[in-house]
Design a protein around this nucleic acid. Structure first.
Length: 482
RNA sequence: GCCCCCAUCGUCUAGCGGCCUAGGACUCCACCCUUUCAAGGUGGCAGCACGGGUUCGAAUCCCGUUGGGGGUGCCA
């Protein structure tokens, strides 16, 4: 699973914490790293940040790998490296902290969180005031190790935002090691990046405020900081950062909802970035290979983007429509009841592909073909009432039924079925659109569905005629009650 | 409160001083086509937050205001 480390190109990383479902924002970030690593012949390093919280991760880790694979980030690809686990590197984190302490750039403090707050309130400031900076405390249980933030300013060079300057006086002496001796994210993250020779950190904007701190750590540890890049966050309709509590953010959920992976990937890439050439093409739909080659951080927008499910679905429709029948049938297989005849489904598949918003909608539009012979579909009352209303409707239904019944087996094709109906309808001076209404409801139970004649061809002559006859009976009953 | 970031149609965006009476995509509406529904075609509604500068000329540069977002943990 560990990819080749032979490449000398840039090393990107994706470092999710295994806290559950895979966030769509994380997916976009992963895609950016993936595109860059591949186009530059570098590495995409997957590191699972499993410190604390979720300790037993095999399940979640596999979930992350599966989710990545779904959007095309394959662990088998030569550019893929990992997964590495942050927890396996705990000793190095502590050792780095130790070095920082010995070098005098970090010091111990015995104030509890509460005490820090109380002092701040008393002093009228916010955060930690550097109380223990010069107290020369030794390590001891309960004492935290803090970084001694130097005077001056820290300039972060960001590939999407340019230069961002922070006045160090606004950065408090932050914690490196907790009272129980364990490292915090800020430290562990930097130490791991250094150990894994990461050269490019591309992550969400929410990390921008952490960056000066991490940059100082890189330097204090004797390394040149990586090339930073902070991409804008994804927000909901309230313009708030997508949150697991309020919003539907799990990639897996969209997958289960019938969103095609390529559509998700394509849509995610349009958020904050525009594929060159899209305007001329009049479309934003592009194959991954082209987006991967064209993606550039300097072209990424600076503002948060709303994750619009409507547009995602529009993309999904496009992708479903453009699938091959074989791929489509394979993709919806899991959504189909096991007893449905796959061969029959394959016959009708081309006719429903351009009508679906989501893969999961497929069964619901063709279920009338899989009822089994002799089983009547459930007739929608409103649809039926509307279809029988015209005075010619019942008469025409009868004529069609007899004509279809009289057809030879080799004549049971959608062309003949259509031509037969057209011949009969002229006497009533109506168009095909109206003529097919009642037969459609009689056979399928609904007023909308796949093209009628194609569906009837698949259904077969015997069952079609049988249902039409049932329809005749029903029509007679409708007339009686009127 | 403090720090940082951001600001073009409802949404995602193109635009990087004159090509902009601001272009595309999604949504919505109308019409055409049509075997229902879709798809497709054509057209339409809709935007440079505001105020000052700079300039012959500003959506584009500068300043301010307002608005939004992110961060302010011994979470990651």
């Amino acid at each position: 699973m560990h990819g080749a480390m032979s490449s000398s190109g840039p090393r990107f990383r994706f470092a999710p914490s295994p806290t559950g479902m895979f966030h769509v924002g994380g997916a976009r970030s992963a895609l950016h790293n993936w595109a860059l690593a591949r186009q530059m012949g570098g590495a995409f390093v997957l590191r699972i940040e499993d410190t604390d919280e979720a300790r037993n991760n095999p399940e979640w880790t596999q979930g992350i790998i599966d989710a990545l694979a779904w959007i095309g980030i394959s662990a088998d690809d030569e550019h893929f490296e990992g997964p590495h686990f942050q927890s396996a590197n705990a000793d190095a984190h502590v050792a780095a902290a130790q070095r920082l302490f010995e070098a005098g750039v970090a010091y111990y403090c015995d104030l509890s969180g509460q005490e820090v707050q109380d002092r701040a309130k008393e002093l009228g400031i916010t955060g930690y005031d550097g109380y223990s900076r010069d107290r020369g405390l030794d390590p001891a249980p309960g004492r935290v190790l803090r970084f001694r933030v130097p005077d001056g300013t820290t300039i972060v060079h960001d590939e999407v935002r340019g230069e961002v300057t922070f006045d160090n006086s606004t950065i408090e002496d932050f914690v490196l090691l907790r009272g129980n001796g364990t490292p915090v994210f800020l430290l562990a993250n930097v130490v791991d990046d250094i150990e894994m020779s990461i050269t490019n950190v591309v992550r969400g904007e929410e990390h921008l405020p952490n960056t000066p701190k991490q940059q100082m750590l890189w330097q204090a540890l004797g390394h040149e900081p990586p090339q930073w890049a902070h991409i804008p966050v994804l927000v909901n309709e309230q313009r708030k950062k997508l949150s697991k509590r309020r919003d539907k953010v799990a990639l897996e959920q969209y997958r289960d909802d019938g969103i095609v992976a390529d559509a998700m990937v394509n849509y995610l890439m349009t958020l904050g970035w525009t594929m060159p050439g899209g305007e001329e093409a009049g479309s934003e739909i592009f194959p991954w290979s082209e987006m991967e080659a064209a993606f550039s951080l300097s072209a990424v927008s600076l503002s948060p983007a709303f994750f619009d499910v409507k547009k995602l679905v529009a993309f999904n429709k496009q992708y479903i429509k453009n699938m091959t029948v074989a791929d489509f049938v394979e993709a919806v297989d899991a959504d189909l009841p096991p007893d449905w005849d796959r061969a029959r489904f394959t016959e009708i598949a081309p006719h429903i592909m351009e009508r679906l918003e989501r893969l999961g909608d497929a069964p619901g539009v063709v279920d009338f073909l899989f009822l089994g012979d002799g089983v009547d579909p459930e007739i929608d009352a409103d649809a039926w009432a509307k279809a029988v209303k015209p005075e010619w409707a019942t008469t025409l239904l009868g004529e069609i039924t007899e004509a279809y019944d009289a057809l030879g087996a080799d004549e049971w094709t959608h062309e003949t079925l259509k031509a037969t109906m057209e011949t009969l309808m002229v006497a009533h001076e109506i168009k095909l659109g109206k003529a097919q209404a009642l037969p459609r409801v009689a056979v399928t139970g609904r007023s909308v569905g796949p093209p009628l004649f194609e569906a009837l061809e698949v259904l077969g002559q015997a069952e079609t005629v049988r249902r039409l006859r049932v329809g005749m009976t029903r029509a007679a009953r409708s007339a009686a009650t009127d």
